[in-house]
Nucleic acid binder design. Structure first.
Lengths: 319, 319
DNA sequence: GACCAACCTCGAAACGTTTCAAGGACCGCG
DNA sequence: CGCGGTCCTTGAAACGTTTCGAGGTTGGTC
């Protein structure tokens, strides 16, 4: 029989008789034949979607991945993960170079213009971008609302001397539109609105790949330590909790996180955190990619709502 | 110029003049040319290694990934991650179908015979296999020593009523040679050697994808609750800690883990755990793959040594 | 000046699919 | 019985690399 026939059977396309179909199928069975993804990718599509994340151990990523996998289940697509752990550009490029049909990326550092270029070659969904580009889709949490909820919560608890612990400079630079830039901005705004502009304290983890624990330790070791720490996300919040605990100030410094990671609800951690529906975000991102692959061209932008989960880590200011 | 020339320049192979080289390089630069991985994979190799893990949120995996990435840095190879979160066979096959040149897999459930088959098509390194197959390489921790160290430690602390909290049945079935089967076996042996055979209590998380928290809760809710829980790995230990804490028995039930995950040293978790050099294991696995790709055919089997890290979660039995 | 070797360059085949257009068989209808 | 149309089937081109062998040029030696 001809390859064309086999191809049609595999993709169960139109125009193949039942007889031919069964003949091909038994042959496939007997020979243990498996189609080559490489050859498929060369001619058409690889049926793989790539998820690029900045770090292997970014806990938020598992939510995204879970959602993405859920969204593609039942389709012929698979999701693979490519942690950058360094240069984001090259990781993205190596994904785009034919390995996958579409890319979901969490790359705060790559330039929008560069992404527009990339999106010409291959469909791209960016997570955590507050701009509204025309060439690719975005999925983002409502960081304004989320961060405001955190600040109001801390104010309500009586805190005034509130510090913000966040990522290194480039990620939070104003105008980049990263979630961390927004959260920082909201922090500043809220402090100023409350007339606490001179109490603003921003600490950052020193190196992108190092934990934020030392930065948090320096924060609580100051002569005027904060009574509350608003951490940029749960991983950082965990480091803050570690530093606070190590300094023997457990329970005397409130700590809040962001992302509502699995660990936040662990009774030993018990971290107040903002849920931004990571799983749903991942699912939306994957769905958007599938739509693109089916021909959609106009951009879509999805914003997830946020919910503050109050837990034990955010303690009331002792009066 | 010819494609052959371009090909040679890219792979900087022998037999191309400096003039031609620079000409090709400027052209590449100007056109923004990027080689297609798919086409490469079709003809030769894709320069991608695949790491297959059972779950997205298995924390041990980040150690493996970190090690693997370290090992391939400086080579043209990249590592991508494919979490199974369900059928391991199909995930492995979809990796093998041309996406990657080699596979590192943590798949306790796939049959050895099937793996031998797979290894004919593509180099495979299995993590966590105590058998010594001939067709593929293995990387494993010294589970006998590690588990014995845990048991001795708990005995030394005065514990007798020690429970083992582990994975569901199929993963720990005797004879499968999975790390969890060994740890379970060592647990039983140690208990019997100490004359405590009738105090053996084995609990399992009910479903493979659900946390072990409920199983742990049932354990501590028994009329004769254990005074110590030897958990199969850190993720499970975390669930055990959660259950113990929720039951108000914090500090009255010792808990130990395995893998020495990042979180184990967090002061709020402070989990006694066995370090089996996950990063080194990942690096070894990747190195073995690279060796295979360069022609090695005889199998290699690497065993990592273990170290018990004693922390606050393993409390002495109150007398 | 002729011959040979070394070196560079290039054309073409091959990898395993998808897809297009063309060829064939079969059926129904006039 | 012949004609047209509908399915089914197939051959061949194409995707973008790598690799092999052949061809061409250059320089050196006798």
């Amino acid at each position: 029989m001809s390859r064309a026939a086999v191809s049609k059977v595999i993709r169960n396309a139109y125009g193949v008789s039942p007889g031919m179909r069964t003949r091909v199928e038994t042959a496939i069975e007997q020979l243990g034949y498996r189609p080559s993804v490489a050859a498929r990718a060369l001619r058409g599509s690889s049926y793989r979607l790539g998820l690029e994340v900045p770090h292997v151990n970014a806990r938020f990523m598992t939510q995204i991945m879970t959602g993405a996998k859920k969204a593609v289940s039942g389709t012929p697509y698979q999701v693979i993960l490519a942690p950058a752990d360094g240069p984001e550009y090259s990781t993205l490029e190596s994904l785009a170079d034919g390995l996958v049909d579409g890319i979901i990326a969490v790359s705060p550092l790559v330039a929008p213009a560069w992404l527009e270029q990339l999106a010409v070659r291959i469909p791209v969904v960016m997570l955590g971008r507050h701009d509204t580009p025309s060439g690719y889709d975005t999925v983002i949490g409502d960081d304004h609302t989320g961060a405001r909820a955190v600040m109001r919560h801390l104010f309500d608890l009586g805190h005034r001397r509130i510090a913000h612990l966040t990522e290194p400079e480039p990620v939070t630079a104003p105008g980049t539109g990263t979630p961390h830039a927004i959260r920082l901005e909201v922090y500043r705004t809220c402090m100023e609105e409350a007339g606490l502009g001179d109490l603003v304290q921003v600490a950052r983890r020193h190196d992108n790949s190092e934990p934020a624990r030392q930065a948090a330790a320096e924060l609580v070791a100051r002569p005027d330590p904060p009574t509350a720490i608003f951490a940029g996300h749960d991983d950082i919040a965990l480091d803050a909790l570690a530093a606070v605990t190590a300094a023997g100030m457990r329970g005397r410094v409130a700590v809040t996180g962001y992302d509502n990671t699995d660990l936040a609800e662990h009774p030993l951690i018990d971290l107040t955190s903002v849920d931004q529906q990571g799983v749903e975000m991942g699912a939306q991102a994957a769905t958007m990619l599938l739509e693109r692959l089916q021909g959609r061209t106009e951009p879509r932008h999805y914003t997830a709502t946020t919910t503050l989960h109050v837990r034990g880590s955010s303690t009331r200011l002792p009066s």
